[in-house]
Design a protein around this nucleic acid. Sequence first.
RNA 1: GGUGACGUAGCUCAGUCGGUAGAGCAGGGGACUCAUAAGCCCUUGGUCACUGGUUCGAGUCCAGUCGUCACCA
Length: 589
Amino acid sequence: MSRERILVCVAWPYANGDLHVGHVAGAYLPADIFARYQRLKGNQVVMVSGSDAHGTPIVVRAEKEGKTPRQVFEYFHARFLETQKAIGISYDLFTHTDTRNHHVIAQQMFRRLLENGRLFKAKQKQLYSETQGKFLPDRLVEGTCPICGYDKARGDQCDNCGNLLDATQLINPRSRIDGSTPIVRESEHYFLDLPAMREQLLAYLSDKDSYWRNTVLDFSRHYASTAEPRAFTRDLTWGIPVPLPDAEGKCIYVWYEALLGYLTATVEWAALSGQPDAWQDFWYTKDGQVKIYNFIGKDNILFHTVLWPAVLLGMGRLGEPWDGGRSGDTLRFNLPYDVPANQYLNLGGQKFSKSLGVSLDVIDLADKYGADPVRFYLTSIMPENKDADWSWSDFAQRNNSELLAKWGNLVQRTLSQIWRNFEGRIPIPGPFNESDQAMLAQSETAFNEVGESLDAVRLREALGKAMELATATNQYLDREAPWKAIKADRARAATQLYVAARVIDSLSILLSPFIPFTCEAVRKQLGYEAPLFGEQIIDIVGDESDRHSVLRYDGRRASGTWKPSTLQPGQLLSGEPKGLVAKIELPAA
RNA sequence: GGUGACGUAGCUCAGUCGGUAGAGCAGGGGACUCAUAAGCCCUUGGUCACUGGUUCGAGUCCAGUCGUCACCA
C-alpha cells in the first residue's frame, strides 16, 4: 500500500459562542475519526482548523458586553481549544484567523484574484448611518418585514417568516445601535466573478458521482451552473482590510478568508513543524497521492463545493510570499477531493440554539460521562444522511447495552479469566482448531471491511462492522466456554483465551478511531507500553506581536497500525482488569 | 417562491439492476454463569408519509400532496 497524503480540513467554528454536541457530531468528530484511521493506515495526515475570529456578530457581542472584538474571540477561542481537547479531536493544528500568517496570505489571495481578473468592482446599495458615520451591517438594522409584516425583522433575515432579506428592503428601517433611521447609500465593492468560472467549476464537479454524497453533488452542480457574482468585500471594522489604497473601511468578506484558513493553517502547521515548505506537499503536489477532505455541516456545502474551489482556481498560481519562488504558471491548488457534509443534530427535536438555551456543553458531557461514551453515541446516530436527534435515554441505552455490555464486558470477562487462571499473562496457545481459526480469520478480514467503510467516510457503518466482531467474539466465548475447559483441559482453555485476547487486541485497533481513550486503556491492560496515538497539546506560538494559542498534535510516540494483532503469548497484563466503561444511570424522567 | 435532500418496526438505521421488507437496541421467552445481572439462544413488532400512475409485479420508477431540513431569491 502506497503512502498517501491526507489533508483533513474541518469547518471553522465562529468564535462568538460555545461549541455544542451538534458541532461535534456534524464535523469535528467525523473528521477526527477519519484522521485517526488514516494515521493508523500509515498515511501522512494533517488535520487543520481554527477559530473564525472576524465579522459582525463578534463586534455586536463585544459592543453588548463592553469588550473589544479581540477579547470576545480570544475568550471563545481558548474555550474551543479546551473543548476539542476534552472530546479528543486530534488536530495537527487548530489556530485562528487573526494571525499574521493568515492576514498576509488573505491579502495575497485578494491581490491574486484581482490580478487574474476574477474580481471586479461594482456599486451596491447599503444602509448608512449618518449618526455614526458608517455603513450598517445587515444584521444591525431592523424594520418591518416586506414579506410578512413582522415589525422586528433583521436586515439579513426575518425571524418571523424565516425569509432572507436584503436590508434595503426593510420598511421603516432603524439602527439597532441607536435607533436612528439609516439612509440608502451606494458603496463600492469587489465581486467574485463566478459566471466566468462556471465551466471550470462544473468540470471540477464532473467526476464526483461515484463517491460524493447525493445530498452534496446535485445541489452543487445546480448552483455552479447558475452562480451569479458574489460580494467579496464588506464594509467592516473587524476583519482583514482590502489591500488597496482606495479601499478604506473595507474588509475581505469573512466567509472567504475563513475558507482560506484551510490553506493558511497548513502553512502555519508546516512552519511550526520546522519544514516550512511541507504545506506544498498537500496543496501543490499533483502525484495523485494527495486527497483533501472537507468535513462540514450541510449549511456550508456551497461554500466548499463551489465558492472555495472558485477561489482556489481563481488564484491560479501563487505569488509571494508563500510560494517559495517555486511555482510555475501551470501550477494550481489542489481542490477538495471529497466534501462529506453532514446534516444536523438536534436536541429533543429542537435545533441547538444558544439564545434559546437549547444546548449541550461538550466539556460538561465529557467530564460527566467521559469522552468515549459521547463519541460512541454521536457516531451511532451521526447525521450522515438526515438530521438526527440527541436523546438522553438513547444515549444511556446505547452506552449500557452496546459500548459497555458488548465491548467493555467482552474485555472484562476475557482478561479477568486470564488474570485469575494464567498468572496475569497472555496464555500460550496450543494448536488452533477450526473454531479458533474462523474466529481469528474474521478478526483479520475485519480490517478490510471496517477500513472500506472508513475510506468511504461511512462512519456509522464502519462502527457497526467493528461492533459485529465484538459480538462474534462474545459468541465464540459462549461456544467455547473456557470457564468449563479450565477445569478439564487447561491447555485448551489457554488456547481459547489466547484467541479471545488476540481478537480483543485487534478490536482495540478497529475501534480506536471511534473510542480512542477506551482503546488506549485496553492496550495498557493488555500490557502494551506505547500508545496508539499521539498527544494533543495546547501551545502558545508566534512572536510577541503575533502570539496566539493553538492546539497541536504530537505524534512522535504513536505506534498504532491498522493491522491484525500479533499478540505475544506470555505478555504480562498491566494489572487486575477493571471496568473500562461506566454504566450511565439517568434519573427517571 | 426556486433548487436539492429526507420521511421504512417503540428507538437508531440497511434495503444493490423493481419480484409482496431486514439488522442492532428496546420488549417477550429460554438455557447457562467466565463477566459491570453483562454475554449467548429463540422470539413478538411494519397499510415502507399520503394519493394517483407505469408494470404481470413498486419501499424501489414517474407525477402530485403533506411533513422536516438546508441553500438561494
